[in-house]
Design a protein around this nucleic acid. Structure first.
Lengths: 175, 175
DNA sequence: CGGAATCTTGAAAGTGTTCAAATCAAGTGG
DNA sequence: CCACTTGATTTGAACACTTTCAAGATTCCG
């Protein structure tokens, strides 16, 4: 058997399209992606989808707001590809932290990296144009660009698919 | 002496306007605010200031990107009021994690809360109008609203001071 | 081969920015 | 206590970027 990253309750294959967390649920699990691609997203009052994050290989994903404050989730989590995940219950999660405090590969570092990614994302959303954000995205996540439809990238960037299409047209023309 | 939250290297009074972290520095310290108000912000190529976060009482602040990846900081950190801080070196920080792994008041929980705040912020930036973001801000941080000039709130929301002024005018008119 | 989803393109409308000017507020020195 | 300076806020007009809506073109799959 393949060695596990954590000490998961289960390892499981998730088929494309399968939902792991529904809006309204309380997030009691964290998913570590061994292979494949998950995403978390929300749907606003106008019915629009906003992708919060992609989780490719070696990423963990959950709704931290729901998990921490024990409130119903705003996010959905589903699979964009067939995905192999390690499923971690919250209490298992805690045990991990106790077992291997502050070693290099601990949850603290993983959390800090996630916070670092979010920090960069917030600053980009505040200060960069859609075009700049797109160019940053393809540089930062080249492997994801090829695996998801453009409308999902638009959704992640916080713009409409039409706007992204126009940006792409513009970039191509200037080459 | 007042009990410390952590086990800080130093406790210090920072006067209003004093800079704790400069762009280009590597963030080797984390600041816990006992009293007062700090902020972190960046300045973009066009010379515009973008406030990344406010740190009032009981918040910690640093540049996580710089701290984690050991690269020069994009952020400045300074004091908006006279502020009493506990200064934590990175290695002290690690020791804390080793000493009290994963207890309720550990760094893991603090990090998760910070990530939760950022999660909400990203979703708001992506899906809400400036007006909605402002209304959320005054609801979420009522105590900060009164302590900082409006242009800083605008900067935090990712809009111009002029835009915020118009939004406020609109809100007042509809009352 | 279709049918459905995705992507592109264009016009019109909306939201926020930029620039400039006027007003307001707070602190300073006389 | 007043006049002055400086920074913050407000307001308006013109502009820029993004959205919305609609229509075609393209691609993907069953």
């Amino acid at each position: 058997m393949q060695p596990t990253q954590y000490n998961p309750n289960k390892v499981k294959i998730i088929i494309k399209g399968q939902i792991l967390l529904n809006r309204g649920d309380i997030a009691t699990k964290t998913y570590f992606v061994r292979k494949g691609l998950l995403r978390s997203y929300t749907i606003d009052e106008k019915g629009k989808e906003h992708i919060f994050m992609f989780a490719p290989e070696d990423w963990v994903i959950t709704d931290m707001v729901s998990q921490i404050y024990n409130i119903p989730s705003d996010l959905y989590i589903d699979a964009l590809e067939e995905t192999e995940v390690e499923i971690l219950d919250n209490d298992t999660f805690e045990k991990i932290n106790k077992a291997q405090p502050s070693s290099t590969s601990t949850e603290v570092e993983r959390l800090m990296k996630r916070a670092a990614v979010l920090q960069k994302r917030v600053l980009l959303l505040m200060s960069a144009t859609a075009k700049e954000r797109y160019e940053d995205f393809i540089k930062t996540y080249p492997n994801i660009v090829q695996r998801v439809p453009q409308k999902m990238i638009a959704s992640y960037l916080g713009i409409t698919p039409e706007a992204l299409s126009k940006i792409r047209g513009e970039i191509t023309r200037n080459k």
